[in-house]
């Protein structure tokens, strides 16, 4: 519990935060938001080169936009689907920083399919990254998070975990499973001082979900924007700011919860 109610509520100064899948989209926005909040950030991507490029940009932006010239941003390679990836990643983290306070499980894959025709290998691929890797990363990070004064995990899920969508069945189920694991971990690890919450973003136009064709892309964006109450897409930073809230002491009494940030899509 934070010592004083007058602490800046969304401050992450002095904390180290690991954000998986942070070379693009929501993950990159979270890395930037955390750096702006004063955290030392670890960016990960399948390609360490991409991660390094993002780390440099994030540090520059945090210095320029948030007056944080001291921002420290690391880059690590992380292939979520690889055997033993979680333990390796945490080992690399430990070799670079003495502590870990915040873990954001954001890395995910999305493959369109019909559940009725889903192959075992497609099922395994989606669940290996979105559920299994995320869960075992929580497990691998547990010792470091338990040593933190303010350990926090945020698992990024998806609106379709709450309202399933034809064409994405395995993806929806893999995210719904993480919501379920989030509650269980919260119950098991409350005693270790680790808060575990999930965040459901809605209507964010990122590379993961957008069609490649520019015309199709525009139509898709318009359709997505019309589905929520606000009639617009979220900016990735609007999702990132909510993750920052969950990661900070402002959410000190929240655990096992799923925060829905969707412009009213599911309301």
């Amino acid at each position: 519990m934070p010592s004083s109610p007058v602490d800046a509520p969304f401050d992450l100064s002095g904390r180290v935060a690991l954000v998986t899948g942070s070379t693009r989209g929501i993950g990159a926005a979270i890395a930037l938001e955390f750096a702006c909040a004063g955290a030392e950030v670890i960016v990960t991507g399948r390609s360490v080169k991409d991660a390094q490029a993002v780390a440099v940009t994030v540090a520059e932006q945090a210095a320029r936009d948030a007056g944080r010239p001291e921002a420290v941003v690391h880059a690590l390679a992380y292939e979520a689907s690889a055997e033993g990836a979680a333990a390796q990643l945490i080992e690399s983290v430990a070799s670079r920083t003495s502590r870990l306070d915040v873990l954001v499980n954001n890395a995910a894959i999305l493959r369109p399919h019909r559940v009725g025709k889903l192959s075992e290998s497609e099922f395994d691929e989606v669940f290996r990254v979105n559920t299994k890797a995320a869960l075992f990363l929580c497990q691998a990070a547990h010792p470091m998070l338990a040593r933190s004064e303010s350990g926090a995990i945020v698992n990024v899920t998806a609106a379709c975990a709450h309202r399933p969508m034809a064409g994405l069945g395995a993806y929806c189920a893999s995210k719904a499973a993480m919501i379920n694991f989030t509650s269980t971990l919260a119950q098991e690890w409350a005693r270790d001082g680790i808060r575990v919450n999930a965040l459901t973003p809605g209507s964010v136009a990122t590379d993961m979900i957008l069609p490649r064709d520019p015309d199709e892309r525009a139509a898709f964006e318009q359709e997505m924007a019309s589905q929520n109450l606000m009639g617009r897409l979220a900016e990735p930073r609007e999702i990132a700011r909510a993750v920052r809230f969950l990661a900070s002491d402002a959410a000190s009494f929240m655990t096992g919860q799923t925060l829905i940030v969707d412009g009213g899509l599911l309301a």
């Binding site: 969304f10 509650s183 919260a186 119950q187 409350a190 809605g202 109450l229 606000m230 979220a234 900016e235 609007e238 999702i239 700011r241 909510a242 920052r244 809230f245 959410a251 009494f253 929240m254 655990t255 096992g256 919860q257 925060l259 829905i260 940030v261 969707d262 412009g263 009213g264 309301a267």
Partner: peptide, 16 residues
């Protein structure tokens, strides 16, 4: 910070 949240119930508790 909550500019993209409306119509939601934010639970400040440990269990629903």
């Amino acid at each position: 910070y909550a500019s993209y949240m409306t119509g939601e119930a934010l639970s400040v508790s440990c269990r629903r």
